[in-house]
Design a protein around this nucleic acid. Structure first.
Length: 301
DNA sequence: ATCTACCTGTAATAAGCGAC
DNA sequence: GTCGCTTATTACAGGTAGAT
């Protein structure tokens, strides 16, 4: 029997998702390619591993045996890679991780700068993605971890999360804006100006829906990143959002307090953290980078 | 450089299921 | 029965890595 770790990973995904489509999606394959990968594994095993007649796509008795060993082998392969990386030291390795738009704008660049100072020969690659893509790419093993909003992952047993400090965000405008210097404004006053947002924080939409009383409320201007958002807010009468951190905000933008929003409202706080796969140990490089992320997060007021 | 085997994606098709 | 949807399978073609 020829053992292919990739096929074993596909079989594990099928057992977890109980759907060819969902499992294929999870491992970033087309459904047909995934189906043939499972077929190839079954051909190697010389027997059916999945009961296609059952709606739940239950593993057959042989499938259960293969599944048990597959989990052990895949986990062992990961640990082997980690130990080799440890043996080789941190200097020549490569670290790949992901980030949501907001952490990518302020926390990640600082952490990479500090990390690069400590491990100048290590290669670092990070990509900014929406949380759904981050989750998929983590399961597809494209990333070792990602730093983003954690609320979609905290209750999922497939993930482990390390929370970062919650930070309050607020609405803001340019200096000289009709609302600047008012201190507190009403929701009606705020919403009489164009609302400009980026992709974060995720709970922003709920706040805007509550403030406007309109379930279908959509921002007038949507920007891909914090820097673009700042530029729009500085050049117009649009109302933006800022967490007071490195999205370059704080200064020179002017913070606005909305009368209808309690200061301690949960939705007014970020919930960022580090997410990695449960059951998998992190490489020394990943642990070092996470250490830098946590240290900078802790030190940043 | 060429051949070969293998892997993958696209498109088409079949089967199952629920709603009408 | 039929229509629409979802899911699984198959045929075909293209890309790539390894062997020669």
């Amino acid at each position: 029997m020829h053992i292919d770790l990739r096929q074993l990973r596909h079989f594990i995904a099928l057992a977890e998702h109980r759907s060819f489509v969902a499992a294929a999606d999870a491992v970033c394959l087309s459904q047909s390619a995934f189906s043939r990968s499972i077929q190839a594994l079954e051909h190697s095993a010389g027997c059916r591993l999945v009961d296609r007649a059952s709606k739940e796509l239950n593993p057959t008795k042989q499938g259960l045996i293969v599944l048990e060993h597959a989990r052990r082998l895949v986990s062992g392969a990961h640990k082997l890679a980690n130990e080799i990386a440890l043996f080789n030291g941190l200097e020549a390795g490569e670290l790949r991780f992901g980030a949501g738009p907001a952490p990518a704008a302020w926390l990640v660049p600082r952490a990479i700068a500090a990390f690069n100072g400590r491990y100048p020969k290590a290669r670092v690659a990070f990509q900014v993605e929406h949380w759904q893509v981050l989750g998929k790419r983590l399961q597809g093993e494209d990333f070792e971890f990602f730093v983003a909003d954690t609320r979609h992952f905290e209750a999922n047993p497939e993930y482990r999360t390390l929370r970062l400090k919650p930070r309050k965000w607020h609405f803001c405008c340019r200096p000289g804006h009709p609302l600047a210097g008012r201190g507190t404004v009403s929701a009606a006053e705020l919403l009489s100006y164009p609302i400009a947002t980026n992709l974060s924080p995720p709970n922003l939409r709920k706040v805007l829906v509550d403030l406007s009383g309109r379930p279908d409320f959509r921002p007038d201007i949507e920007c891909e990143n914090g820097h673009g958002l700042n530029a729009v807010v500085l050049a117009s009468n649009a109302i933006g959002i800022a967490s007071g951190l490195g999205q370059g905000v704080g200064e020179p933008l002017v913070a606005l307090t909305v009368a209808e929003l309690p200061e301690d409202l949960e939705e007014l706080h970020t919930r960022y953290g580090i997410v990695y796969r449960a059951g998998y140990s992190l490489s020394p490089l990943a642990e070092a980078m996470i250490g830098e992320l946590q240290r900078i997060d802790e030190e940043t007021v």
